[in-house]
């Protein structure tokens, strides 16, 4: 791959997915895109770059973006965010939503479904407390391919052993040959939709909880700020944003503030204002256009 080809691919990925690749990530591009090239009948990445520059390359561009943005995921990844969800976020929302009895949760980078299904399993464990509530989990991802896998909810033996306690495995999964499929009641709790965070996502409607973990790290500063600020406009004033362990809003925007003593959890900053800040345009609960 020539330096020119690498620059072309970097720009393409930045424009299409927000993915920022530093100059030293050539090995990553090669390892992820060579299989895409071969699948398209091409033998080198230079040929792939040529094909991507040509007209009518949209399908191939989607394949490239999906190959580069598909990231490994596992159940209850990092554990702590799910403990916060169960012990802090949900109790707070169950109290504040006692009348309207409705809670909306958005997994903004659902990948192959482990994160939304982990949340669904937590909610199932809390079924006594959540009785009478309508709880929606909306799970989105850029890649339609990973969303198909997520919808099927079928995982390998390796996948179900990383992060998932064995008690939850036998309670919530059934064996399908050598694979494991998540139970129908948990699958029914999650709605999957393709969504590019770089584009307008306001049609998702108001959210009480947003899990946006391990995505922002791939974006440049301006994109991070833009995505976070647009999320703040969807967020209920007393909602919660959960970011990945290596991510923060601090120093980027004042639209959210860190929740004291709850690492990785942020709440809308009602003091923020102006186009760059968290403008809370809605009062809760409007039923926004585009909601099912």
């Amino acid at each position: 791959m020539t330096p020119n080809d690498y620059e072309f691919l970097r720009k393409l990925l930045k424009d299409r997915s927000g993915l920022m690749l530093s100059a030293d990530k050539q090995y990553l591009v090669e390892s992820r895109l060579l299989p895409v090239a071969r699948k398209a009948g091409l033998s080198t990445l230079t040929e792939l770059a040529q094909k991507l520059r040509a007209p009518n390359a949209e399908k191939l561009i989607v394949d490239v973006v999906e190959a580069m943005t598909t990231n490994e995921s596992f159940f209850f990844r990092d554990k702590l965010p799910f403990e916060h969800f169960q012990n802090f976020i949900m109790p707070a929302l169950l109290a504040t939503r006692a009348n309207q009895k409705r809670i909306r949760i958005w997994c903004a980078a659902a990948s192959t479904g482990q994160e939304p299904y982990s949340l669904a399993m937590v909610l199932k464990e809390m079924s006594r407390q959540t009785e009478g509530f309508r709880i929606e989990i909306i799970a989105t991802d850029l890649s339609t391919e990973v969303l198909e896998k997520a919808k099927a909810g079928i995982y390998s033996q390796f996948e179900v052993q990383r992060g998932l306690p064995v008690q939850l495995l036998i309670k919530n999964f059934s064996q399908v040959g050598e694979m494991w499929q998540i139970a129908p009641d948990l699958r029914a709790m999650v709605q999957y939709r393709p969504l590019n965070l770089l584009r307008d996502f306001s049609s998702l409607g108001m959210m009480d909880v947003i899990f946006c973990r391990n995505v922002l790290i791939y974006f440049d500063q301006a994109t991070k700020i833009d995505v976070i600020n647009r999320m703040s406009r969807l967020m209920a004033p007393d909602g919660f944003l959960t970011l990945g362990a290596a991510e923060t809003v601090v120093g980027l925007t004042d639209s959210f503030k860190a929740v004291t003593g709850r690492r990785g959890i942020y709440s809308p900053n009602s003091a923020a204002s102006g186009p760059a800040g968290g403008v809370l345009k809605f009062t809760h609960p409007p039923i926004a256009a585009g909601m099912r």
């Binding site: 033996q157 064995v166 008690q167 495995l169 036998i170 059934s174 064996q175 050598e178």
Partner: peptide, 11 residues
């Protein structure tokens, strides 16, 4: 022994 019955017995 990778089946639900064995896992349940073990637990």
């Amino acid at each position: 022994e990778n089946d639900v019955a064995h896992i349940a017995r073990a637990l």
